[in-house]
Design a protein around this nucleic acid. Structure first.
Length: 370
RNA sequence: GGAGGAAUGUCCGAGUGGUUAAAGGAGACGGACUGUAAAUCCGUUGCGCAAGCUACGUAGGUUCAAAUCCUACUUCCUCCA
């Protein structure tokens, strides 16, 4: 059996090239993990996701516990078999979903009671329940159950929430069933307050996890990246060197390139899939919003520099037509292109770290990509 | 041949005397989306930079005021012969 471990293979500045060994195969890092919330990367067949170069995908406790239920997934042989993804799966603990549904939640020291968005029924998540569900799903990487705060948030509230999160993460760790090749990550909170982030890291390292994730919310409604950038720049170096560093829920291609430069190893984000379904394609020099009139008679591929199936096969005019007609294929094709683009960027990131040319690469790509 | 009904902005469609440049929808154009309650959500959409102008089949009329009432005409639909 494979021991769950992080292998640091090369460094270029703060950027790290590594490999996470797991029971379900390796994850080459820096890695982008497509989001498959309900056991599906929306619009994609899993073999295609794999062929694009993804090593690991996400699943979600909140969604899967409500439908179809963790027991059913377990009965069907676990999430890997259920969704036809033999590789590593990372499951989010549900903390973020419960936070984003904050109008119908009710939390206490023990956990959170919330109302299902599907049928209004009452459900409960605690660190123990979330961890058990992830065990039943057979998650390769289990996330500890944390509390998210709104952003911006006051220092007092962030501190109070962090203290509870640390207690919850300790309980998550105690509930975690250790198995060869499986791991559990702790989630760092503390909003944009460096001393809280530091306290969070210290507490989590003290508990001891197989990896550490950067959680919370650092983007405001203006889309400014200043808070994100300064927080990441300050706090990521405090994360343990010998364990994987996972930035949760990020981001645009430029966010990935920047964050890798700051020492992050793993990402997940709905942007390439969701925005693909909504008609936005990421290309080598920015973004193509396929519904724009300028593409009506455009016989070029989405991205002339892309070698994906979609770019080799279809014109922008056709993709626009599909989108304007409301065809499901439009979202599928743009999703396929976007994920391909993201994996290509990750490949370039890894190659440039290995070659020791990361800064030049980052400078060039940050200037042209969204 | 007779009896009813209908004509509204790019399209569909509400409105039956005055907060009506005219509800709502579609379409078109633009924007947003970062640990997925999202093939979603949000703007704009007669002309003009503006004062303003032109608009509810056509032509007249009533009224302080009409898309809304009256008359004629045109076109379309349904039913009866």
């Amino acid at each position: 059996m494979t021991e769950f471990r992080y292998e640091l293979m090369a460094k270029d500045g703060k950027a790290r090239r590594g490999r996470i060994h797991t029971a379900h195969g390796p994850i080459e890092t820096p890695a982008f993990m497509p989001v498959g919330t309900v056991g599906s990367v929306k619009g994609m067949k899993m073999e295609d996701v794999r062929a694009q170069g993804a090593d690991c995908v996400l699943g979600n406790v909140y969604h899967l516990m409500l439908r179809p239920g963790a027991d059913l997934v377990q009965k069907m042989g676990g999430l890997h078999k259920f969704m036809n993804w033999p590789g590593p799966i990372l499951t989010d603990s549900g903390g973020f979903q419960v936070y984003s549904l904050n109008d119908i939640r009710n939390d206490d020291e023990d956990g959170v009671t919330f109302t299902s968005h599907i049928d209004g029924s009452k459900h409960r998540l605690t660190p123990e329940i979330s961890t058990e569900i992830q065990y039943k799903l057979d998650a390769t990487i289990t996330m500890s159950f944390d509390e998210c705060t709104e952003f911006p948030v006051t220092y007092e509230r962030a501190k109070e929430s962090l203290e509870r999160t640390i207690r919850w993460e300790k309980r998550s760790r105690e509930a975690f069933v250790k198995r060869e090749g499986y791991g559990q990550f702790g989630i760092i909170q503390g909003a944009h307050y460096p001393d809280l982030r530091k306290a969070s890291i210290d507490a989590l390292v003290d508990i001891g996890f197989e990896g550490y994730a950067f959680g919370g919310w650092l983007f405001d409604e203006t889309g400014s990246k200043e808070t994100y950038n300064t927080t990441v720049e300050t706090c990521v170096p405090w994360m343990p060197e010998e364990k994987p560093r996972y930035m949760m829920g990020v981001g645009y291609p430029s966010d990935l390139i920047y964050s890798v430069q700051q020492g992050i190893d793993m990402f997940d984000c709905v942007i390439p899939t969701r925005n693909g379904r909504k008609g936005q394609a990421f290309v080598h020099n920015g973004v193509v919003k396929i519904k724009q009139a300028q593409y009506k008679e455009d016989s070029a591929p989405l991205d002339p520099e892309c070698d994906c199936y979609v770019c080799k096969t279809y014109t922008r005019a056709y993709l626009r037509h599909l989108y304007m007609s409301g065809e499901a294929l439009a979202g599928m094709l743009l999703t396929e292109h976007n994920l391909h683009f993201y994996q290509r960027v990750m490949r370039l990131i890894r190659e440039n770290i290995e070659a020791g040319t990361y800064d030049a690469f980052a400078k060039e790509w940050l200037a042209k990509v969204k």
